[in-house]
Amino acid sequence: MSESGWEIGVMLFSGRRDPSWVPATDVVERIERAFDALPRLTDPVAEQPPLGYRGAYVRGPGVTVTACRGVATRADAGKKDVRADPLRKLEQLMVASAPAAIWSEPWAGVLRSEGLGP
């Protein structure tokens, strides 16, 4: 967790800690605006398989926003707000904020296969 209290990461690993990084302040603001612009989702959400890529997240003091395969969720003080993100814009916004170095990691191919990243 950064001094600002915000981090972004991808949920990918099991044995190792998931990759995460400290976002610039304007990235967090853009993510929050993008989330607010998404339509609410009331249909039940399909469970993700337990192993492998499980989405991206941004986490700050008391709040976590996750995005995975068309569904975005904001969890804040025990409340959940679920939105539809069919074009995966929010997820892309989170992943695109990663440091350039991650794209040479062996696991970067998993993100590319999800259609994420540069």
């Binding site: 690993f13 190792r16 800690r17």
Partner: peptide, 20 residues
Amino acid sequence: GYDFHWYRKGRNGRWSHKPG
């Protein structure tokens, strides 16, 4: 190349796991 994972066999003979 990028991660390991473990499963455990339980008392009922079935396996379970905890991804990260």
